[in-house]
Every structure is written in C-alpha cells, then in structure tokens.
Write a protein that binds this DNA or RNA. Structure first.
Lengths: 209, 209, 209, 209
DNA sequence: CATGAATGAGAGTTCATTCAT
DNA sequence: GATGAATGAACTCTCATTCAT
C-alpha cells in the first residue's frame, strides 16, 4: 500500500456512470492537449476546463484539485503501460531469456514511439508532484511481472533473478528514456534499438555459460 | 546553434568582480538549499533572496528573472559535470575501450552519489523550463569528449564510432539516472553498478572480435 | 410595518402536508447540527441537504435560497421563545410586579440553559443576515406581552409602564445574553441569576414606594 | 495567555515605521467604511484594498489573511474601549461604589453613542470569527480594572467583590448593548440610561446596609 | 548600486443556484 | 415532485517584478 500523498490526489468518485466517463475523458484529453501545446506552466484549471468544454466547477466535481488531475493522468498512463508490460510478460512466459528481454525493449520502445511528446510531457508534469508513491507503486507492479518472466524463462539464469531483473529493467527503461530525450532521427534510433538488444544478448550469453 | 529561449535566461553580466562572485554564489547556494528543503514549488524569489542574505532587488541585478536563475544553476551543474567527464576522457585516452566505458560509469556514478538529492532536484527544476537548448548543448559537448575517447582507444572498435558512442552513453546515462531514481539501498546499488560494467564489457567483447 | 428584506426570506409554501413537514423539519434539524458542529462558515447548502437526507433541489423546493433557510430557522426559534414569554406573562397576570420580573428572568434563563450552544450559534447565524425586520418584529411581539403583564400587575407601578417595561426587558435580555456569553461555571451563573433578580426587586421597591 | 486562534490572525509585522502606519490605518479605515456601508457580506479583500487606495498585495503585506484584518480591527477597538474603561476606573478610585457604577455606565454609553453603527458592525464582523480568545482576553482585562475599582470604593461592599463585579458588569454591558440594538430615539434612550443608573443604585443601597 | 514595499494580473478554488432527466 | 451534475461568477491569496528611496 503506497503512502498517501499529502494532498488528495485521487478522483473524488469513481467515474462509473457513462455520463461521468465522457466528462472525465474530455478533461483528460484536454489536459493532454494543453500539456502538449503549452506545457505544464500554462496548464491552468480554466484553460483545461475550457478546452474540455466543461466548467471549472465540473472539473472540481471529479478532481479535488489541479494536482490530482495531473496525478490521475499520470496514473492512467502508467496503468496502461503496466498492462502492456504484463501482457508482454505473459506472452513471453517460458521463452529464452534473451528473447524476453528483447520483447521488453520492443514494448517500451513501442509505447514511447506511439506518443513521444506525451510521454515527455508526462515526465515533466509529474516532476512538480508528490509522485514518488505513484512511481514506486508502478515500478513494483512492473517489476513483479518482469521478475516472474525472467525466472520462468526456458534457460533459467543465475540464482539471483531479482538482481538480474534490476539490471535489465534499469538498463532498458533508462536507455529507452534517454534515447528519446535526445532528438534522434529515425535511422539513428532504430540502430540504437538493435544495439541495445545486442548488448542485452551479449550480457546474458556471458553470464549464462 | 541552439534556439534561443523565449525570455532571457542568462545572467546580465559575467560575475567577474569578486564582490559579485560572492553574491552570485550565495544566491546559487540559497537556491540549492531551498530546492532541497522545500522543492521547486516553494522556490520563490523572496525566499531565495532571504536565504542568500540579499534583497530581491539585488537578485534581479544578477538574474533578469527567476527562470534565468534556475537555468544558470543548471548550467553551472552541467558544466561541472561536463568538465569531469572531459577529465575522465583525457585520462582514459588510449586505454582499452572497456576500461574507458567503466571509467565513464564511475564518473557519472560518483557525481550522482555525491549529491543524490541535488541532481534529483535539478532534474525537477529544469522540467518547467525551456531548457532543451541547454541540455542539447551539454549533450553535444560531452559526446564530443566521449566519442574521441572511444575513437582513440587502444583497441579501436567498429567503423562507426559515433554509433558506438551513442549506445554506450545512452545506456550509461540512462541506467545511472534510473538506478538512482529507484530508492535502492547501498548493497543493491553497488551490485547494480558492477553488473552494468559487466554488461558493457560483454557487449564490447562481442562486437570486438 | 418592518421593511422587507432585499431577497425573499420566507418559505415558498406553508408546510401543511405531513410529508413536507417531515422534510422541512429534517432540513431544520440538519441546519442546526451543522451550525453547532461546524459553524456558519461551513453551512453550505450541499452539506445541509446531505445531512438532512434530501437533495439540494428538494431544499430549494422549500426555501428559495440559503438566507431564507437561516432566516426561517431563526424565526422558528424566536417564535418559540415568544410563545414561552407569552405563556409566562399569561400565567403571571395580576401578580406582584417583582414576581413577574423574576418569572421573566426564569423563562429567558431556562431557554438559554436548555440550548446554550444553539442560541449562541443562532446569534451568529443571524449576524450576516438582513434580519433587523425579524428581530424588531420579535421584540415588538414580546414587548406587547410583557408590557401588559407589568401594567396589570397587582401593585401597579409608575405612570409610564412602557418606560418601565423598556428598562426591565433591556436589563433582563441584555444581562442574560451577556451572562451566557462569558463561559461561567454552574455556581457563578446561578449566583448571578439570584443577584439579577435581587437587583430588579430592589429597583422596583425603590420606585414603588 | 489566551489560546492561539487556528489560523494566523495577527498582523505579520508591527506597524512601527510611519509609512506602514499610514497604510495600515488606511486599510483599517477602509474596512470600517465597507463594514458600515455594505456589511460583512460585501467585505471582500479587493473592495477594502480599493477603498484604502492600496493594492491587494499591500494588504497582504500587513495582514496574513482577511480574517486577520477583521480580527485586528476588533482588537484595536476593544483595546481602545479597555483603555477608556481603565481610565474611568483610575479616576473613580476610592469614590462611593454607586458613583463608580454610574461612571462605568457613562463610559460605555459614551463609546456606543459616539459610533453606534460601528460597534454594531463590529459585533457582526466578529460573529464569523474564531474570536473567543480575543473577547475573553478583553473581558479579563476590563474585569481586572472594574473589580479593583469596586474593591477600593469608599463604601466597601460585600465580602465577595468579584461576584458583585460580575453582576454589575453583566447588567451594564448587556443592557447597554441591548439598548442600542433596539432602534430607540434620543428621549427614550436617555430616560433608559437614568433608570439603569437608578437600578444599580437601588441594588447597591439594598445590599449595602 | 542596494533595498524591500508596493504592485496587480492571474491562479486555484468554492458554492449558491439551476434545470434536464 | 425529486434529483444532483453542471454552472460560473466571485472570492481569497500568491509572487515575479518594479522603482522610489
């Protein structure tokens, strides 16, 4: 159970009714738009509400404050990301470990590629938040999935799978993020991706014998 | 030539006189303290000036606006980091490439370790800024140094050194950053560091033969 | 004829049907609860409606606006108070004037004692209202009763009964209110009560000879 | 030492410099004007600042929030009132007790008469505040002065002076307040004043023998 | 040059009231 | 009639920036 953030950061009510769902989605979408076109500095409640076609009051019906909105948006994104990672892990169950690692790289890379600016913007938006709890919870969830994938790989590796998992995920997440933060062109970036895979393979081969 | 940021972000004058130097340093130090103890949200000009023992007016003598202060602080840090990387590169000139990579890891790791919270705080402070220019300039400078180091290594590698440099730096910077963002304990983190080195070594071996 | 308050302050309809009666009572009760536990600042329509177990819309069926609700609550309380004073006056008809005064003190004191916090809260709630009309109407009604009581006392007093009534009521209402506004303990307060009676008696004796 | 109110209610800095003094006075005066002409409901920070000829920001330089402003205004008034009562008490030192009581009535009556609407407005303004501490501190201060005056009267009274003080002050403060809350004309009100004095005299005579 | 009181645009947030369902 | 989501005007408060002293 992650520690509660100091101010309320979760939606006031679960958006279950279809009416609410639409409204909440519109607010999320508006937030993303503003985040992309203007940045965190220009993300004001008024602007978001306007963009979403609702009143500020309505926004506050669903989010107790501005922070909570940004927090929820990040949560939504991280949940999606976690689900995709989990799907990959399920699919790669029992396959050779190098292939598993490569699949993990592909998944992360794909998410980044799909919405480069958005992931960038979200990284920035979360910087001003009390978001450690959220990020740690996400990390824990994803780690659980990948650790299990690596443990149950066909060519079971070293005794300490959790250390292996830590290394691979740290390298993969870090490298992918860093790769996209540089403004590389298509060719460079795809070359980089293959080499990253090669590096993981090389390492796994070296420890696997 | 990096695009100019929309508002002036550089100090109005080079702090050459010793009086100014002291003042500017006090302001930087105060900014760091506030950033560490309160976070970016509480970083107000009044608070910084107070902490630095100067008046707001004086602060504006040296920094045209608040952004410029944060920008300059980051610039100062990145310059220091670049210098240390350059020093490492100079020192590793002509050594085997794997050793060079390890030295790069050690340098980055050392900087992070010395001031974990500060680097974290600076990452956050820069998130709200038009700082792409700064970061790209820094990346270019550091890349120049490392590329040269790798090119002139005793066991000169592949034809495309710049691709090799890209891979190694992306992996190293990304992984180091990611490693410190998780709240790992001393043992985990030092194990991680050796494995990261091992991974680089394994890769270089695999492509070097 | 008291001046009309600027916005409608009376319930839209007399709550004659038993259904309505129950609803209105629930709303009143909820208002009192909120007033006591949270104070006037937290008395919002949403909170009251929730506490009363009805929707805001329903509340607006019975009270055209928030002011009207508070106004009506005060009116209800003042009516009750007036009725008790009138009962006392009827009962004291023809008795010696000093006894009448003492009975008046007892009645006021009793009402205050029964619901100290409520009377206090009501005083506060009425402070932000255009309530002069209400309070004057109440004063006039009560004055009518007491004046008559004093006039028809067995030992009829001075020629100017209305001046006598003014003095006695002013002193009694003022003193009782002031007494309860200080946070006195049981002993002090009951001693104060007897002395207040003694004072009235002394005065009446002095003018009655 | 009175309990601290939950939110800061005292001015941020003592207005000692003459520049500040002027500003603070302008703000107080503006607050009074708004209170008198519009009432507590219309007392907004913007309106007060405008009326005072300063910016909102300046207001917040001297008062941490709106409550604090109203609180300080009441404090200022009560301090003045306390000083006048203390002056009266000093002057009446050693005089017969009935005269002392009459002087107390005169003092209170004078203050009320001088600024009827203001005292009314202040009563209302304080109703929405966490002002118990302030009022109790004021009551204690004034009680100290009057108790001493009664104790050292030439015709020293009953053994329990503090009970006597309680009765007299409760009756006087309560009655005076109540008298002015009714909208009496000049004749009625001066007649009432003499009778109030007469009543105190009668009581003191009755217990003094 | 240094100071820091003054500024005021603009941010986040609340809540009485309405009206489509 | 009852509901409660939606509204948006209005409020309090902040803080980067200026400029008279």
């Amino acid at each position: 159970m992650p520690t509660q953030p100091p101010v309320a950061l979760k939606p006031r009510k679960t958006p279950s009714q279809s009416r609410s769902r639409v409204t909440v989605d519109a607010i999320f979408e508006a937030t993303i738009q503003v985040l992309l076109s203007q940045g965190m500095g220009e993300l004001t409640t008024t602007v978001v509400a306007e963009r979403a076609g609702v009143s500020v009051g309505t926004m506050y019906q669903y989010f107790p404050n501005k922070q909570a909105l940004v927090y929820a948006l990040n949560e939504r994104f991280l949940t999606m990301l976690a689900e995709r990672v989990e799907a990959t892990c399920a699919q790669m169950q029992g396959r050779p470990i190098a292939e598993a690692a490569e699949a993990l790289i592909d998944t992360y890379w794909a998410v980044k590629t799909e919405r480069v600016e958005l992931t960038q913007a979200l990284y920035r938006s979360v910087a001003g938040l009390e978001s450690d709890a959220l990020l740690h919870a996400f990390a824990a969830r994803v780690d659980r999935a990948t650790t299990q994938m690596f443990r149950q790989a066909s060519n079971s590796p070293l005794p300490d799978e959790s250390a292996l998992n830590l290394l691979l995920t740290t390298v993969i997440y870090g490298a992918v993020r860093n790769a996209f933060e540089r403004g590389l062109d298509g060719e460079e970036i795809s070359a980089l991706k293959s080499e990253l895979k090669a590096m993981c393979r090389a390492y796994l081969t070296s420890v696997g014998e």
